[in-house]
Simulated assay, not measured.
Amino acid sequence: MSHPRNVATMRSSPRCGAQTRNGEACRAPALRGRMRCRMHGGAWGSGAPCGNSNAVKHGYFTSEAIEERRFVRTVLEDAEDLLRRLPAASDTIRNPRESETGCTTPGTDSPLRT
């Protein structure tokens, strides 16, 4: 080549900067008006389409499902608090049939049913 090449504009152009497989930044020039090169998403048509249906939330993370799980959690916590505050049922309440007859079904704590 007998004539000098003008590479100053290419060297001064912004670089892509996307992380490559080896962990370094991509050194390819970014496309005009974009932040990435043609290989990392700067090309026309790259990226998600408008109104991406793949980004729709499925049932587990909808706001209704999250609110329902919160409600169930508070109901369970309230029930546990109530049970902790109640006295032990076996100490205070006795079965009247058991005290009358004194008979229980073998292998159980319940009275014999007749």
Rank of each mutant, 00 (worst) to 15 (best):
E80V: 09
P96L: 00
L76Q: 10
S53E: 02
S12I: 00
A88H: 14
V72H: 03
P49W: 11
N95H: 05
L76D: 08
K57H: 02
H58S: 15
P111H: 01
S46A: 10
A8C: 04
R36E: 01
R34N: 05
G23R: 14
R27V: 06
Q19N: 02
R85P: 05
R32P: 08
R38N: 05
P14W: 07
R38D: 01
P106T: 14
L86C: 15
T108F: 10
N52I: 00
C16F: 04
A18T: 11
A88D: 15
E67L: 08
T74F: 01
P29V: 13
P111Y: 00
E68I: 06
L112V: 12
P87A: 13
G102I: 01
C50Y: 13
N54W: 12
N6S: 12
S13D: 02
R32G: 08
R73N: 03
S2G: 14
A89S: 13
T74L: 00
R97Q: 03
D78L: 04
V72Y: 02
S99W: 03
E100A: 05
R32I: 06
R38L: 02
M35A: 08
C16G: 06
N6D: 14
R21F: 10
V72M: 06
N6W: 05
F61Y: 13
S53W: 06
H40T: 01
R73S: 03
P87K: 05
R113W: 08
A43H: 03
V72W: 04
R32H: 07
T104E: 08
M35I: 12
A55L: 15
V72G: 02
A18W: 14
E100W: 06
P49A: 10
R11Q: 08
S46D: 13
R85L: 14
R73D: 03
V56R: 04
R70A: 02
L112D: 08
E98T: 01
T104G: 09
R11G: 00
A25T: 07
T108V: 13
R113N: 07
T104K: 12
R70P: 02
L82K: 02
A43V: 07
G23E: 12
M35R: 11
P111M: 04
S13V: 05
S63C: 00
V75D: 03
L86Q: 15
A79R: 11
F61A: 15
L31T: 03
A88E: 13
H3I: 15
N54R: 12
G45K: 09
I93C: 13
P87F: 10
N52R: 08
L31S: 00
R84Q: 12
T74M: 00
S53M: 04
G59N: 09
P14Q: 04
G17Y: 14
T101W: 00
H40R: 04
G41I: 10
C26H: 11
A65W: 11
A79W: 10
C37S: 06
R85V: 10
R38K: 07
K57Q: 03
